[in-house]
Amino acid sequence: MSGSTRLENANPLIFERSLERVVTAEEEDESLADPIDDREIFDLIRSINDPEHPLSLEELNVVEQVRVRVNDPESAVSVEFTPTIPHCSMATLIGLSIKVKLLRSLPHRFKIDVHITPGTHASEEAVNKQLADKERVAAALENSQLLEVVNQCLSSRTA
């Protein structure tokens, strides 16, 4: 990121990170099956880096656990995300990062739906449409510059 370029939102609100999920006795018991739940999905996406700030999507409150819904038996996931400002030009990129993260981390049987929290972005519909279009997502990932930014958001290592 260039030092001289101005950030769109230089001083955003910061939210507290939730604690690590506590490992329960049931989880350590081999014989029981743990269904995939909201928190598990949230844990997958909360640590995604923001493209602008050295902060996670959770710290910027772009993703929240209440806006994650999963139905394990029916293999369906739905995630709503909230851009920090209504004109955020990064919204599509953030949505794409969430989508890619889930595609890589969930079993194939899942249908993944990522969209903007209703009423929080100026071009909400357009972004949602892009994110829902399989072909456009695939095409976006063919673009190596775009893929690079997405991978940076998903990388666990900080620069």
Binding site: R104, Q145, S155
Partner: peptide, 19 residues
């Protein structure tokens, strides 16, 4: 699953830009 996600994520980044 948690370990699988971490490992697979890392293998996805392998050889691709922005790693």
């Amino acid at each position: 699953r948690r370990e699988a996600v971490a490992a697979r994520g890392e293998w996805f980044l392998l050889g691709s830009p922005g790693r």
